[in-house]
Nucleic acid binder design. Structure first.
Lengths: 345, 345
DNA sequence: TTGTACGCGTTATCAT
DNA sequence: ATGATAACGCGTACAA
C-alpha cells in the first residue's frame, strides 16, 4: 500500500508542494483560501505528515527531552508532570523517553538528539557512572535532576548541570531524628551499598548520624535490597524487611531509604504482628504522594519535587538561551513528620 | 556545528558509504577486517546514526508500539512490563508512547506509524469514542487492551481487536459480594458516569447487582470523582470520599471502582475516624500490586494482568503474521478477598 | 567484497 | 502568494 504523501496532496489540490507545506506549518505567506482548500483535502484523505522526514530537514525543533530510568518510580511521575507543564509554557514540546534498566542513558540521549533535533536533555534517575569521553559527545545542554552530587567525581563540573538534594546530609538528618526519638536499634533498608548511587549516599548519611552522636551503629541492621529485582519497589522493601525480621535481630525502628521501600517494609512488619509506630517506627525518604495516603502515613524526608522540577526546566532554558553556562543547585529537603514514627518505648 | 554523518566516516576510513552502512547494520557480506576498522573509527569519532534518516528509508521495522493514556496508573505499569518482555522474545522492538489526557490517541498513533514504520499498535487506557472515519486510516493491526466492550458500539468489530474483562459483569460480582456480606448502604466512588467509559460500565454493574437482588440502591450514595483532576488518582478518591462523609449520608461499605481510588477513599475514612473493615468495608477494582501492600490490604476484583498482556501481544503478532484477522477476548476477573471488607455489623 | 547513485518525504531557498 | 529544486542522512539496488 502506497503511503500518501505531501506530493499526492499537492497534485490533488493542483498546487505546488511547498504551498502544501506552508499550509501544514502555519506559514504566514499563504492565501487563506488556498490554505483552507488544502486543509480540507488533507482531512478528507487522512494525510499525516511523516515525522521522520520532518526531523531530517528541520534544524529548529523547539523541543527538549526527559530521559527517565525507572518508569514505576512515583517520584519521577510527580516530577514529569511539572516538567511537562513548564515546558509547555515555554512553547517547547517535550519528548518523554523511558530508558530500560539495562540501557545506557547516554547512548539513548545521543540517538535521540540526532533524531529529534533536541535542544536539551533532562536525566531522571540512573547512576551516571559515565565516562567523560562518551558524554562529551552530547553537544546539547543536559541536567541531572535528583542525582546531583553523584556525578561530580568523574565528570568536569563545568560540562553539565544538576538539580538535587544533598542525599547524604538529609539522610543523616532523617537518621538523627530517629536517634532523637530515642531509637538506637535502627535498621536501614538500603537500595545498594556497593555502587556509587543515591542509595549509597543515603546509607552513608545514616552512618554519619550515628558517628556524630558517638553511637555505634549495628552492622547487622544494615540491609541491602535484593539485586535481582527492581531496587526501588514495594516488593523489594517487603522482602528485605521480611528477611530482617526472620533474622531475629532486635530493632525499634526501620529506616527505608525510599518511601516506596518503606511501604513494602511496613507491610512486612504489619504481617509479622508489629504495630506501627507503637512497636516499630518506620521512616522513608522522598516524600512521594503515596506515603501520605498509606496507613499509617509515612514520616519522610521530603524532596521539594515541584520546585526542583521547575528549577530544572528554568535552568535548562537559561543554558539553551546562553544566559548561563552551567549550575549545580542543591535544594534542602524537609522532614515531614507524619504518623509512622514514635518515641522509643 | 556540523553533525557528523556516515559520509564523514566513509571518507575517514577510505571506504564507500555503503560499506560503512554494512558495518553498522551487521550485514554479512563485508570483510571482517574492514568492518573492525570502521567500527573503531566510529567509536573514536562518536558517530551516531540518525534515526530519522533510517526510518525514512526503512520499510522493515520489526517494531510495535504501545500507547498509554494515563501514565500514573499502576495497572498500566504492570501490563507494560509484561508487554515489553513478550515483545522482546519475538525479537521486535517496543516503542512506548505516552499520550497526554488532552491528546487524541488515534492521531498520535497515525503519526507514529508513519514515523517509525510500526507493524502494530496496542492501546492502553483512554475512552475510544473515535469516529470510524479517523481510525480507519490506521492501516496496521491494533488492539484495545483493558477497554474491550467499550469500543464495540461505534466501530465495526471486524476492524479491531480487544482484550479485556467484562467490567460491567465483574463490577456486579464485586457489588454482590458486598451485598452478601450484609451491606445495604454501599457507597460507590465512580470514575465518570456520563461518558461511555470503563467507570460508567462499572457503575452499571453496581446497579445491576442491586437490581438482581431486588434491593433498591440509594442514589445519594453514588458519587462521581471530580472532573478537573485525574479521574484515576488517590487524590480524587480521597476528595470524593471526603465529600461523601461530610454529606452525612450513612453507609457501611465503600466500593471504589479502581484500587487507586480505594486507597484515597481509605485515607479519607481513616482520617474521619472510621476503622476498616470494622466500621466501614472498602472494596476496589483492578488488583494492582499496591492494594496488597496497603493497610488494610484492599479487597478487590483482580484483572489477570499478566495473562491479558501476554495474550494481547500474542494476538497482535498473530494478526501481523496473517494467522488471524481479529479477535475479541474477554478474561474473567477474580474476587481477591484481602483485609478491607467485613460483614456488616 | 566494495563503491556509485538514487530515492525516502519533508522543509528551506530562491525565483517568479 | 506560489512553484521548482536542492538538501537532510541513510539504505540499497546495481554495477564493478
Amino acid at each position: 500500500m502506497p503511503e500518501i504523501t505531501i506530493k499526492d496532496i499537492a497534485k490533488q489540490c493542483g498546487v505546488g508542494i511547498s504551498t502544501v507545506s506552508r499550509a501544514i506549518n502555519n506559514h504566514p505567506d499563504i492565501n487563506p483560501e488556498t490554505k483552507q482548500m488544502i486543509m480540507d483535502v488533507i482531512r478528507e484523505t487522512g494525510f499525516v505528515p511523516n515525522n521522520s522526514a520532518r526531523n531530517l530537514k528541520r534544524t529548529d525543533a523547539r523541543s527538549i527531552a526527559v530521559l527517565v530510568k525507572g518508569i514505576a518510580n512515583p517520584l519521577f511521575s510527580d516530577m514529569i508532570k511539572v516538567i511537562e507543564n513548564e515546558t509547555q509554557r515555554k512553547k517547547y514540546s517535550l519528548v518523554l523517553q523511558h530508558v530500560e534498566y539495562y540501557e545506557d542513558e547516554v547512548d539513548v540521549a545521543l540517538e535521540l538528539v540526532k533524531e529529534k533535533r533536541l535542544r536539551g536533555i533532562i536525566f531522571l534517575g540512573g547512576y551516571f557512572l559515565h565516562s567523560e569521553e562518551k558524554i562529551s559527545n552530547l553537544k546539547v545542554p543536559y541536567i541531572f535532576s535528583t542525582v546531583g552530587t553523584l556525578v561530580s567525581e568523574k565528570l568536569d563540573k563545568a560540562e553539565y548541570s544538576s538539580v538535587s538534594v544533598d542525599d547524604r546530609k538529609e539522610s543523616c538528618a532523617m537518621t538523627s531524628y530517629l536517634l532523637e526519638l530515642g531509637h538506637r536499634d535502627i535498621a536501614i533498608i538500603s537500595a545498594e551499598s556497593e555502587i556509587e548511587s543515591i542509595g549509597r549516599l543515603r546509607l552513608e548519611g545514616y552512618r554519619d548520624a550515628f558517628a556524630e552522636k558517638g553511637i555505634p551503629c549495628r552492622e547487622e541492621l544494615v540491609r541491602c535490597v535484593e539485586e535481582e529485582i527492581d531496587h526501588f519497589s514495594m516488593e523489594n522493601g517487603y522482602l528485605t524487611t521480611k528477611r530482617l525480621i526472620e533474622s531475629g535481630e532486635k530493632f525499634t525502628a526501620v529506616y527505608a531509604t525510599a518511601d516506596i521501600l518503606a511501604i513494602g517494609a511496613s507491610r512486612a512488619l504489619l504481617e509479622a504482628g508489629y504495630r506501627i509506630p507503637e512497636d516499630v517506627s518506620v521512616a522513608g525518604f522522598d516524600g512521594i504522594e503515596l506515603g501520605k495516603y498509606y496507613n499509617p502515613a509515612i514520616t519522610t524526608m521530603k524532596q521539594p519535587v515541584k520546585e526542583m522540577a521547575e528549577t530544572t526546566v528554568k535552568l535548562l532554558f537559561d543554558i539553551i538561551a546562553g544566559r548561563k553556562d552551567y549550575e549545580h543547585i542543591v535544594f534542602p529537603a524537609s522532614l515531614e513528620v507524619r504518623e509512622s514514627c514514635g518515641e522509643r518505648r
